[in-house]
Simulated assay, not measured.
Amino acid sequence: MRVLLVEDDDGVADALVEALGAHGHEPRRVARGVDALTAHRDFDLLLLDLGLPDQDGLEVLRKVRRVADVPILVLTARGDERSIVRGLRSGADDYLVKPVRLAELLARMDAVVRRGAARTGTADRVVRVGDVEIDLDARRVVVAGRDVALTTKEFAVLAVLASRPGTAVSRQQLMDEVWGDAYLAVSRTLDVHLTQLRAKLDRPGVIATIRGFGYRLSADA
Rank of each mutant, 00 (worst) to 15 (best):
L45Y: 01
G145Y: 13
L150V: 09
R128L: 02
L75R: 12
K200Y: 04
Q173M: 03
T189M: 02
D44A: 03
L20P: 09
D147Y: 13
D69H: 12
G33L: 07
V127W: 12
G145T: 15
R211I: 11
R108V: 04
G87D: 05
V74M: 12
A219D: 04
V192K: 13
D44W: 00
D202Q: 08
R203K: 15
R82T: 13
G205E: 04
Q172K: 12
V60T: 10
V143L: 01
H40K: 09
L201H: 09
R139V: 05
D220Q: 11
A31F: 04
V141S: 04
V160Q: 09
A182E: 04
D110V: 09
V100K: 05
A182N: 08
G57D: 07
L4F: 11
R86C: 02
E7K: 09
I207M: 03
R140Y: 12
R140D: 03
G166L: 11
E59R: 07
I207V: 11
V60F: 14
V17F: 02
E59A: 05
D8S: 10
F155S: 01
V160W: 14
Q196C: 00
A103D: 01
T38K: 04
D176P: 10
V126I: 13
A22Y: 03
R125K: 14
Q55M: 13
L106D: 01
K98Y: 07
D147Q: 12
R140L: 11
R198P: 03
V127N: 01
A138H: 11
A199C: 02
A103E: 01
V70T: 08
R139N: 03
G51I: 14
D94A: 15
V129F: 13
A111M: 15
P53N: 10
F155D: 00
Q55D: 06
L73D: 02
A22P: 03
A107K: 15
L47E: 06
Y183Q: 06
G166S: 08
D49T: 15
R203C: 09
P71H: 11
V3F: 01
Q173P: 01
S170Y: 07
E104C: 00
P71E: 00
G51N: 15
E7R: 07
A138P: 13
V157L: 07
V132N: 02
R139D: 00
V3D: 04
